[in-house]
């Protein structure tokens, strides 16, 4: 592999990894506070990708999609939380898994119903369709912008969780939601907000990924698998785990896709198997 190709693949890997981070961090936040794994997470990502496709088709503007994708998905998540999930908090954790799984199935079927099972391409926004020079090398501007957006989100999230009152409620809630409730904080509302935030982050990942790989209705299952791998590798419940896991998996995928294209996806899962055998709690995990 030449230096240029290696650099290109490393950058690509970080770009994909940042999208994987956005996809997984919501899963981690929701798990940290509410103690269940949201199987509809991939479907939120799917929904946002299709919102991007529809908005770009309609208005021609990717920027509207960047706003509407996460917002509409957050609204969808709120409706699902109020209508269905809320009633399962008292049930064993299988109930939440199964109900979010059913919701994922439903969202996927609705997407196929509206947009047919065939995939579609989403154009890269015109302002970012060019290339940038990184020293002697060239790189697509859009991919670089994705890394930038995800990095900003990661920093904002970190500040919000570590340095704000809302963040301290979130951290306390993940230690003991019951205790936080006894202190007079409306835990119900915190659950609601966290679920919507997590969904919006998956939505942001879905919007950003649409111009890179297009949209198709079965991308949700793939995304869910990837998000699971990322949180297993990084460690569930920590922001840094999602970041480290996401970038690591992105790098594995990107570098393997030059070395062994058919096996690139397989190697992601092999990397996960390796990590859990060496460190069952994940690289950054505490539990």
């Amino acid at each position: 592999m030449s230096t240029q190709l290696l650099l290109f693949q490393v950058l690509n890997g970080v770009g994909i990894g940042m999208i994987y981070f956005l996809l997984s961090v919501g899963l981690t936040l929701i798990f940290g506070l509410m103690r269940f794994v949201n199987f509809a997470h991939g479907a939120f990502y799917l929904a946002a990708a299709y919102i991007t496709y529809a908005v770009v088709l309609w208005t021609g503007s990717f920027w509207w999609a960047l706003l509407l994708g996460p917002v509409l998905v957050a609204v969808l998540a709120l409706i699902i939380e109020r209508l269905l999930l809320r009633h399962t908090y008292a049930l064993p954790h299988e109930a939440q898994i199964l109900i979010t799984f059913a919701v994922a199935l439903l969202i996927q079927e609705v997407v196929i119903l509206l947009f047919t099972p065939l995939g579609h391409n989403v154009p890269v926004p015109a302002a970012l369709s060019g290339i940038v020079f990184l020293g002697p090398y060239v790189y697509p501007a859009y991919r670089l912008a994705v890394v930038g957006v995800a990095a900003v989100v990661a920093i904002v999230l970190w500040i919000a969780i570590e340095r704000t009152k809302m963040g301290s409620i979130l951290r306390a809630g993940s230690e003991s939601a019951e205790m936080v409730g006894l202190l007079g904080i409306n835990v119900d509302r915190v659950f609601m907000a966290t679920f919507a935030l997590g969904a919006a982050l998956a939505g942001l990942a879905g919007v950003l990924v649409a111009p890179l790989r297009g949209v198709e209705p079965f991308m949700s299952a793939e995304a869910l698998g990837i998000a699971f791998v990322v949180v297993v590798v990084g460690g569930l419940g920590t922001l840094s785990g999602a970041l480290v896991g996401g970038i690591l998996i992105g790098l594995v995928q990107s570098i393997m896709s030059t070395l062994w294209p058919e096996g690139a996806q397989l190697m992601i899962y092999a990397a996960m198997a390796l990590v859990i055998m060496i460190r069952p709690t994940g690289l950054m995990g505490r539990i």
Binding site: G225, F228, Q265, L266, Y269, A270, P280
Partner: peptide, 25 residues
């Protein structure tokens, strides 16, 4: 060795691995 939700996630992840192994070979 992993409990609860971790167990569930790992079963799904390994199932995906099998599918990609079929595509790889």
């Amino acid at each position: 060795r992993r409990h609860g939700v971790y167990f569930v996630m790992l079963t799904l992840a390994f199932a995906q691995m099998g599918y990609f192994a079929v595509l790889a070979f």
